[in-house]
Design a protein around this nucleic acid. Structure first.
Length: 825
DNA sequence: CGGCGGTACTG
DNA sequence: CAGTAC
DNA sequence: GCCG
């Protein structure tokens, strides 16, 4: 069911650093997303700052929204703006051994708040925000480092920690350290930095030091996670003197000796730790121990716990969100030229190759290839999403776009819009143009009269160019600009007013992509695209909020970037080794997010380790062995040669077979990620063709051309979708190549051709177009009247309108035919 | 709160 | 069915 | 993480 699948899906997800909102699984409706609170306006706030004196050096940070709408605290001058208690309050210095009873916080104990985002409340309805969301951090004393809330992100972290029961201490560490149970360090801090920050030579073992993603992870999973997980560890901290204690033992013992929790937390199996562990409890160091499934063992016996358990397990093992620094983004890559000429395929000599071999993922160096094409024409979710973004965003601000990739797509859309057939449709565009807001909304439903006008002016130009295939070609690969290391704050460089923001968000996006949070990554991509189309510098959250695809969370991040030049969350600029490994493993054919993550958690970092220690599926074996090969681009000429060989053999078997090399080759691109070959025959049944495919494969294998099979259609008469994925090699001195055979019924060859020729972005826009007109376009054909039931289930196949001819599909959709070379969106 | 594309093969 | 690929 |  949906619920189930959702849960399992979220199994994959990581607790995010600052996820301002909790994923909010179904069971925990009680945890209102923080964002909601943030949005809520702040009516009477008069007494708030009634604070006063009390210059105790140390205080608790009370970030908790008091009423149900406060927030937006002001950190006037950077330093701890903390609240000052109205009533003078003793510095908190509980005796170490004594468990401090939870102090009641004075009502007036709070930050100063300020109205900051005027329009905010209109955008999202404000959910009521419980003052205390949970109590998982009860009796924990957090000392944040840096110990201030200058940074909005940190501010939020403090706030959230507090909302979940933690005491967040500010002020001199010296004075408060007896109370401190946890040091929450900014991810950019290493152990020495921390010592320096608090002015200590060393730290007692009982104080837990974790990275600042720890609290948010705990909150997300509503458990105190094991702080010893690598993603929370602070680099450089000396190993504890105590011998390492097996987790099992610990969790066992701890689960029984756990302190009580609030009813709610019990319900949620939140295990609480006792504070001030040290003396009495040396082994069961708080946090260290607490395994989420302390209580899971109980559950184990119940019928359904499988999922639960799994989830819990995942929780423990979830690697922290580490930011990947460089990741080539599609949009930054140079646009391919569509010249047929293949001049010396640019294989950056051996360096590229060896680079790959040297355990760096193949995808790293795409920017270096002077001809770039999407690595994976159809499978890459990124491409998909990018396409989506572009497809739905249209022409806006064409002028400002110095040849970005989306231009092409915009063209398609613009073209479509201009087409007579579509004119009557609701092809909307954006809303008013009064503000700086240059954007079009994604799914606007209104038919703005001015729209057509705009299309004519702006779109007119586009549509003109649309007639000229190579529009996007000359685009200057703007990769240098703004990509430079430039630490400088607002380094605008010629590119755009918000390059810095875009760059930072891009890093986050690739981070989430790497860590298998595809939809969050999608949101980032959309946001980036939106920002990119915004011709003015974004300075405040409220301004950013006005852009489409930018919500509260991103808006606050944008403001932070605009003001500080970067994002605290990103400070970890250094790509962690875990991330590198993750990336490496994800690059292996047959290895996806699950496996890659599992392996990383096991501590593997190289292919060799995997090869030796892991049991692999057949495909994965090939993937590991040929990792370097598969990572390499295939020169167009070589693709052609592969095609030739296959065709030759095919013809020996049946003269009537029709073969076509699809994919990026068909689009005329100079180097391809793989080889896609369609096999069909007029009047032939699917079953026959399938038999033929088997024979072809057989022969090619004998011949030594095909080296390995990765996946193949089931023997039975797979009417359609008969396919064969594998590897081929032209000659012993060349790399193995990924090659796909696709058996297609004659009647569907047009749709198949269209679909498998791509590129993804183009496909996307075609689909979008089709759906706007009430069609469904897929790899089998163009359908009309596909009826979907409630649960998005297809009730009716719909009637096939066209599948044989690409041209006709274009025709029916009402757009001019575009030869493959012009489909490089 | 659910959707974010839709389908097929492997184990 | 989950994981992966296209 | 955003949108309808």
């Amino acid at each position: 069911m949906d619920k189930a699948s959702k849960i399992t899906f979220f199994d994959n997800l990581y607790a995010l650093h600052d996820g301002v909102t909790d994923p909010d699984e179904d069971e925990c409706a009680s945890f209102a997303p923080f964002a909601a609170a943030q949005k809520t306006p702040n009516p009477g706030q008069g007494s708030a700052s009634s604070s006063s004196n009390s210059n105790s050096n140390s205080k608790l940070w009370d970030t908790r929204p008091r009423k149900r709408n406060s927030l937006k605290l002001v950190s006037t001058q950077g330093n701890i703006v903390t609240s000052t208690p109205a009533e003078p309050r003793e510095p908190i210095t509980p005796a170490p051994a004594v468990v401090p009873s939870k102090p009641k916080l004075p009502e007036t104990f709070r930050f100063k708040y300020e109205e900051k985002t005027p329009r905010s409340s209109t955008r999202r309805n404000s959910t009521s925000t419980p003052v205390q969301k949970s109590n998982i951090f009860a009796d924990m004393y957090f000392y944040f480092i840096p110990n201030n809330i200058k940074n909005i992100t940190r501010k939020l972290k403090v706030q959230r920690a507090h909302e979940h029961g933690a005491f967040c201490i500010s002020g001199s560490f010296e004075e408060t350290q007896k109370a401190v149970t946890h040091i929450i360090a900014d991810s950019s801090f290493e152990y020495p930095d921390i010592l320096q920050a608090i002015g200590q030579k060393s730290l007692p073992d009982h104080i837990i030091i974790v990275k600042d993603n720890f609290p948010s992870d705990c909150i997300q999973f509503r458990r105190i996670l094991d702080h010893k997980q690598y993603m929370y560890l602070i680099p450089g901290r000396p190993a504890p003197k105590l011998a390492h204690i097996p987790l099992d033992a610990i969790s066992a013992s701890s689960s029984s000796s756990i302190a009580t929790a609030t009813p709610k937390s019990i319900q949620k199996e939140v295990i609480k730790q006792t504070p001030h562990n040290s003396l009495t409890n040396k082994f069961a160091t708080p946090g260290s121990v607490i395994q989420p499934h302390g209580s899971l063992d109980v559950i184990k016996a119940t019928p359904y716990p499988k999922r639960k358990r799994k989830q819990a397990t995942d929780v423990i093992t979830t690697p922290g969100p580490n930011i990947v620094k460089e990741t080539p983004l599609l949009r930054n890559r140079p646009q391919p030229r569509f010249t047929e000429i293949v001049k010396e395929t640019p294989i950056k000599g051996n360096s590229y190759y060896t680079h790959l071999a040297g355990s760096t993922p193949a995808f790293d160096d795409f920017d270096n290839l002077d001809d770039f094409d999407d690595f994976d024409d159809f499978g890459d979710p990124d491409d998909f999403n990018t396409a989506d973004t572009a497809a739905t965003t249209s022409y806006a601000a064409s002028g400002q776009l110095p040849g970005k990739h989306q231009d092409d797509l915009d063209l398609i859309i613009a073209t479509a819009k201009q087409h007579p057939f579509l004119d009557s449709e609701d092809i909307s565009e954006d809303d008013d143009r009064d503000t700086e807001d240059e954007d079009s909304h994604e799914n606007p439903r209104k038919n703005n009269p001015r729209t057509s006008e705009k299309i004519k002016t702006k779109g007119g130009l586009l549509s003109f160019q649309c007639m000229h295939p190579n529009l996007a070609g000359p685009a200057k690969p703007a990769d240098d600009v703004g990509t430079r290391e430039g630490n400088g704050g607002s380094m605008g460089t010629g590119e755009g007013p918000n390059e810095r923001i875009i760059k930072v968000l891009s890093e986050l996006e690739s981070h989430y992509t790497l860590h298998s949070d595809p939809f969050r990554a999608l949101s980032y991509r959309k946001a980036i695209s939106s920002i990119r189309r915004h011709p003015y510098p974004l300075l405040t959250a409220s301004a950013a909020l006005k852009l489409p695809s930018i919500g509260p969370s991103l808006a606050s991040k944008i403001e932070e970037i605009a003001s500080t030049g970067n994002l605290n969350q990103l400070d970890t600029t250094k790509t962690s080794s875990e991330d590198k490994a993750l990336k490496l493993f994800l690059g292996i054919y047959g290895v996806g997010p699950k496996k890659a993550r599992e392996w990383v958690l096991k501590g593997y970092t190289t292919l060799e380790e995997i090869r030796e220690k892991e049991k692999l599926t057949e495909a994965q074996k090939v993937g590991v062995e040929r990792h370097a090969d598969f990572g390499r681009r295939i020169p167009r000429e070589e693709v052609r040669e592969h095609g030739r060989v296959v065709e030759e053999v095919a013809r020996e078997i049946d003269q009537g077979l029709v073969l076509e090399v699809m994919g990026s080759y068909r689009r005329g691109v100079k180097s391809c990620g793989d080889i896609d070959i369609m096999i069909t025959k007029e009047g032939a049944e699917g079953r026959y063709i399938k038999l033929v495919l088997d024979r072809i494969v057989e022969r090619l294998t004998e011949r030594g051309f095909l080296k390995a099979a990765l996946a193949a259609s089931k023997g039975d008469d797979a009417t359609d979708g008969s396919k064969w994925y594998g590897a081929s090699q032209l000659s012993p001195d060349l790399p193995w190549r990924r090659i796909d055979f696709l058996v297609v019924p004659w009647a569907e060859r047009g749709a198949a051709l269209l679909y498998f020729t791509g590129n993804v972005i183009f496909n996307r826009s075609m689909r979008l177009l089709a759906s706007k007109k009430g069609y469904v376009l897929n790899q089998r054909g163009l359908y009309l009247d596909v009826i979907r039931g409630p649960k998005r289930q297809k009730l009716t196949e719909g009637t096939l309108v066209e599948g044989e001819s690409e041209q006709k599909i274009f025709e029916i959709l009402g757009i001019p035919y575009r030869p493959p070379e012009e489909r490089n969106a």
